[in-house]
Design a protein around this nucleic acid. Structure first.
Lengths: 242, 242
DNA sequence: CCTTTCAGTTAGTTA
DNA sequence: TAACTAAGTGAAAGG
């Protein structure tokens, strides 16, 4: 108990393995009967309780919750993690603790994700010919009314407006419909032809048909290619541009 | 290294804390420079790497991936977790290990998610026949004077007023008395018959007798049923289109 | 096996 | 702070 309270005070990471029960109440409510699990309380006050299997914790609490640790009946280690907005509480009771430790993790490492949808967009903004030769950008993230935002807004070699919807992963029919909403919205606003292009690594089955039916085009754009376009810029740390 | 390989073979849960770097490549790609983190490999072959803060792991691998553990240059502990469909790989390199352990978690506990009283109320508001066929709602949370609030206020098939007290857990005599206060208050205000119904998963011992003595009804309402009614909820997207 | 939908989603961004 | 959207979403349900 002292170990946990001390660790919480020093914003360490606490790991406890043992036999416990859990009760959660808040956005929903759940109950977990006795079993051996691993509890992790992180420096920001998030809580994770993991069973032996599964990517996701069986019970948890998001960052910034308050703790009350106590020993009940002289032997039951009780951890209460509460949170407001939304008001929810997690109560763990251990009757046996196999391992308990506190770690002061020193971590100044930098995390970098290479190809996100945002980065694909930036690559296309830098190199519009990825999508189509002769494409000229008009603006990015143009507001499209209540149908949301378009990813890229351009003009093709023939002077027609083009709406480009970008997806990082194989595009679904949903993406085609989203593109359709953008195009439809734009057509209502301007009295000239508007094309739609779905730019993604590939299309999921059925999406090609729907896209053809709606009258839009598909352009295969590989994340790798985008990454190569962005590479020289990220290497030179273009944060100065901003 | 032997500890990890042995633990993997025996489907234990492995926890390693130490200084490491991480490279991920697959659905996207990421790189994490040196820092102290906690690695957890679970019995089903899922991998979680946690930094000192944040609910989510900074890097991970979903269940059922393959491992290759080795010591490089005689001192760097390397863990390679690969997976196919989609093809992705996670590579961790530790140059220092503060803690390493393998846990054979014995967990036969049952996890149950149940709805809250508020959600049960919403389910009954959506589907009043959960309590009784022919029930018509009049209002929710009608003020009941100084005896508090009633959960649901309705009219039965015969036109009699009905006060419904909802409990998420087995209802006690207390709940019956609470219902009684609501009914009594209402009877003073309106000059017509008022019924009382206690809706809960079940009754605690003795409550049934008291309820009968007071002249009220009990209706078993399972949280699971309520949950199913609430499931296809909040389809506000469709309504926006119409 | 693939697709769709939900989640105690979490996390980030912007108005 | 609230609203909105993306996520290496994960997980469950349905075809």
């Amino acid at each position: 108990m002292e170990l946990i309270n001390d660790a919480l005070a020093k914003q360490k990471v606490v790991i406890v393995a043992g036999n416990c029960t859990v009760d959660y109440e808040g956005r929903a409510a759940s109950k977990l009967t006795w079993g051996e699990r691993v509890l992790m309380i992180k420096a920001d006050g998030s809580v994770l309780l993991h069973r032996r299997s599964g990517y996701e914790p069986v019970n948890w609490q998001p960052p910034q919750c308050r703790f009350r640790v106590s020993i009940e009946d002289g032997k039951l280690l009780t951890v209460l993690a509460t949170r407001q907005k939304p008001n929810e509480s997690l109560r763990l009771v251990f009757d046996e603790v196999a391992v308990a430790m506190a770690l002061a993790l020193d971590d100044k490492g930098e995390f970098a994700m290479h190809v996100t949808e945002e980065q694909m967009k930036r690559a296309i903004l830098i190199e519009p010919s990825l999508v189509e030769p002769g494409l000229k950008l008009i603006s990015e993230e143009t507001k499209m009314g209540d149908s949301g935002f378009t990813d890229v807004y351009a003009e093709d070699a023939s002077g027609r407006l083009v709406v480009i919807e970008i997806k990082r992963t194989p595009a679904s029919r949903d993406a085609a419909l989203q593109l359709n909403r953008y195009v439809m919205t734009l057509r209502k606003r301007v009295n000239r032809p508007v094309r739609g292009i779905l730019a993604a690594p590939e299309l999921k089955s059925g999406t090609s048909v729907m896209l053809a039916k709606l009258g839009y085009d598909f352009k295969a754009v590989s994340p790798e290619r985008c990454f190569q376009i962005l590479k020289p810029r990220t290497d030179t740390r273009l944060s100065e541009f901003l």
